[in-house]
Design a protein around this nucleic acid. Structure first.
Lengths: 257, 257
DNA sequence: CGCTGTCTGTGCAATAGTGCACAATTGCTC
DNA sequence: GAGCAATTGTGCACTATTGCACAGACAGCG
């Protein structure tokens, strides 16, 4: 049905970690969709009927909008994971909105099918349990990050995260959008980016941010990026290691929920 | 072995929701422990070998400590839930620290035993899936809350949450501790509480905060308290309804992950 | 080329929160 | 009922961030 799925790599690390019959079980159930920026995968209150696996450079996010219309990103998911009922186990109403941040291909799987496949395969159960643990870790770290860290550090963290997912130095994003995701004023974010640029860490262009000096940017960013990455490595390192390698681990004491 | 467990109510709403053979399955596996404030249930990096069910007025929290020694609470759990591997499904290293905030009895269950019981009972699986979805909702909302809402509102939210769990107007907590949980300076929190007191919402006493005007406090608090409560009601309302009632729902559009 | 809409840069006043020092108060213990 | 340790109150200077207004720059399009 979908030709791309018979080739070896789907472009999603979770799926590409599958082998043998687990692969056979899941792959035929996937539907490939090209998603535009801003496309809503599900709204708060909806029953989430499908899971999306960002493939290649596409990125989706969970966002929360307040009564006053301000928004923040509460989780980001790229080709390292999946979004929609992964943590909340499907069949329950979504609490947040899911939006496509970086356009691109997404592999879509009905929640119901995933549940069945998990019921049939311990490997799948294990894989998704591990991923949702990592996603949770990311979210927990964000609670702390938003409470404690100044915008400049959080901005640097966010840029690192997106770069990891895109695998490119050029990040296609506007100040406006990034400000929304961080939950700050656009005009202040512009100043913050200016500051990062003056420190030679990034270059700011219309509609994109270019990473110039990744190591220095890691230095500038809060510890959150590294802490989450380490948890991914601990919990999913072996899995990802088998296919692509998302994670370049810096040796450090493991941090763990 | 533990006499209290044969009586009808454990003081934990999740456990008290159980009936018949599910109850019989789980109850004998519980160990009652009296926990002191500050007691650490598990540390980051540890394999979480047991789940704790706060009973009655006891409250535990997940907290994250940064490199610079600042801490924040990332989740709170009282008698409405359980802590430790509930979301992260056990057998994976904890990402955050779990600490007892309000001393009291906790029912403890080995993670392994819970997994076995869940394997044997669809009702248990359903119950814990629902609870972890709610806990996740709470955490997601906190990401947004910490990014967007000023301390006064967050402080009011936190007080409401603790009052719900304790079921009392008198909250035994110091400014120091609360400031840590909110991730702000103690001296600033003192001023914030002063302000709430001047608005007749609370009374501040040494080592405790007394709620004077709950409705007005709900008005002052950010929407986060209500949003999370509504999700609990949607997802677990029927369950809790069967035993105690944690949740006094205000009619409103449901918000949902 | 020139227009137009989007995106970015910047000025300025105001509020929120930090960081620290130290005084005042309270509850408890002996 | 004095003393001690923990807790709370407050002053002050400083930084972070908001909120808003508006000018300037860029990219694509006809």
């Amino acid at each position: 049905m979908i030709p791309a799925l018979d080739t070896l790599f789907s472009g999603n690390l979770l799926l590409d970690a599958l082998r043998g019959k687990d692969r056979v079980l899941l792959m035929p159930l996937l539907e490939l969709r090209e998603c535009r920026r801003g496309e809503v995968l599900f709204e708060p209150g909806e029953d989430v009927s499908f899971i999306s696996f960002p493939s290649g450079p596409s990125v989706a996010a969970l966002v929360i909008t307040t009564q006053h219309g301000r928004t923040v990103e509460v989780a980001t998911v790229g080709h390292e994971g999946a979004i929609g009922g992964v943590v909340s186990q499907g069949s329950l109403p979504a609490f947040s909105r899911a939006v496509v941040q970086i356009a691109g291909p997404m592999l879509r799987l009905e929640t119901q099918r995933l549940q069945e496949a998990k019921a049939a395969s311990p490997v799948l159960r294990n894989l998704f349990t591990r991923y949702s643990d990592c996603l949770l870790a990311q979210i927990l770290q964000s609670v702390a990050c938003n409470a404690l860290h100044p915008i400049e550090e959080r901005c640097a963290r966010w840029i690192l995260g997106l770069q990891d997912r895109l695998g490119s130095d050029m990040l296609p994003i506007t100040h406006e959008l990034l400000a929304d995701l961080l939950g700050v004023q656009r005009s202040y974010l512009t100043r913050t980016l200016k500051s990062l640029q003056q420190q030679q860490l990034v270059q700011v262009r219309r509609g994109r941010i270019i990473v110039c000096n990744r190591p220095a940017l890691e230095e500038k960013a809060c510890e959150c990026h590294g802490a989450v990455k380490r948890h991914f490595e601990t919990v999913l390192g072996a899995v990802y290691g088998a296919s692509g390698t998302l994670i370049a681990l810096r040796p450090a004491a493991s941090q763990a929920v």
